[in-house]
Simulated scan of single mutants.
Amino acid sequence: MNWTAILTAYQLQTEEIEQVTDRVYKIKSNSQSFALKKSRLTRDDLGRWQAIQQYLQEKQILGFVPVYLTKMNHSFVESDSDFYYLMPWIEEQYLDQPVDEYATVVHAIGRLHAATMDYHDLQSVKQNKAVTEQQFQRELSLHREQMLRFVRYFEAKRFMSPTELQICMYYRDMEQVFNQLERWQDVYLDVLDDTDKMKYTLCHGNIRPSHYVATGTHTFFLNWEDAFMTSPTYDLAHYYQYLCQFHDCDFLKMTESFSIYCRYIDLSDYEKALLALQLLSPVKWLELISATTHPRRNSSNLQQSIQIEQEYRKLLLALDFQEYIYQTLQLSQTEDLY
């Protein structure tokens, strides 16, 4: 990193530079504080990222932290093939009154999605319904076969490793995941016929505690490097999956936060089915299991076990959460009448 070139580009007279994380620096200059971010952006990402920045400013999104322009009116500085950008430093406020982060963050997600919402026509998706149904069946069959093949491979050994035993113990729960996936695939296909449009919003793309700052009045989202326009369910699925990997995840607060979100965005049955399919996706789980059969030279058995446990927790809580979502469907309420 060429500090002189970066500071000169932003015309900063530094008083102090503090490295906060491996990618974030806090810079004090002229009695103000700034955040310098070493991004993960590639040259191919820059155009999309700059367009997102401009879009957020034009829409005047509440909670968006703008980037400063350089003296050459650029939104970033390149140094040693890395791209850096500068933002105001937002100080997190610690209040005496406890803050419910689940609700706070979902309020912010809801406001973001509501402010950027548009609609996407589903006519082409409906026309390809038969292809989608075949793809669903093929993928689910493949997932089931992969899982069974791994379990048989591990159980055929005289002695299983702790990680292999861990995977085999979770086989019955994974069967439940596959069964619920099949149910939601049917729901998706059933409600597709009666759905003409789906909501289309700007999604942050990577919502987690390190990417937002909660103050007394607003929640500010940071790091828009993964932002793009898609179904609002993408942000919800990503955020809930992140929460679910931890042992102290509060399921009740998850369901309450989902109700809060639906006050901002009234998700259709089609979109709820899409959310459930995203939450129940076993792709990452199967990738982790596959990695145990072809361990890397420097891989740690303990780290593998932790990753498998975290992914298992995501899917286990997804099983409970999808049942809650199912009870909110208009389809399920109609079925209950008969």
Rank of each mutant, 00 (worst) to 15 (best):
T163R: 06
T163Q: 10
T163A: 15
E164Y: 03
E164P: 00
E164H: 07
E164F: 02
E164N: 06
L165M: 08
L165K: 12
L165N: 07
Q166G: 00
Q166R: 08
Q166C: 03
Q166F: 13
Q166T: 00
I167L: 04
I167N: 01
I167C: 04
I167K: 02
C168W: 00
C168N: 07
C168M: 05
C168Y: 03
M169E: 07
M169G: 00
M169D: 08
Y171H: 04
Y171V: 01
Y171M: 00
Y171L: 03
R172Q: 08
R172C: 01
R172A: 02
D173V: 02
D173P: 00
D173N: 13
M174V: 09
M174H: 13
M174R: 09
M174I: 12
E175Q: 15
E175W: 05
E175R: 12
Q176N: 15
Q176S: 15
Q176M: 14
Q176L: 13
Q176V: 09
V177H: 10
V177Q: 07
V177K: 12
F178D: 03
F178A: 03
N179D: 11
N179Y: 06
N179H: 09
N179K: 13
N179V: 02
Q180S: 09
Q180H: 08
L181A: 01
L181T: 06
L181W: 05
E182T: 10
E182Q: 14
R183K: 14
R183V: 11
R183S: 05
W184N: 05
W184P: 01
W184S: 10
Q185T: 06
Q185V: 01
Q185F: 01
D186V: 08
V187G: 05
V187W: 03
Y188P: 02
Y188A: 09
Y188I: 03
Y188T: 05
Y188W: 15
L189W: 05
L189E: 10
D190I: 11
D190L: 14
D190R: 15
D190M: 12
V191E: 13
V191C: 12
V191W: 10
L192A: 09
L192S: 11
L192I: 11
D193R: 07
D193K: 04
D193S: 11
D193N: 12
D194A: 09
D194M: 01
D194Q: 07
D194W: 03
D194S: 08
T195G: 04
T195H: 06
D196E: 15
D196N: 09
D196L: 09
K197P: 01
K197Q: 14
M198F: 03
M198A: 13
M198W: 00
M198C: 10
M198R: 07
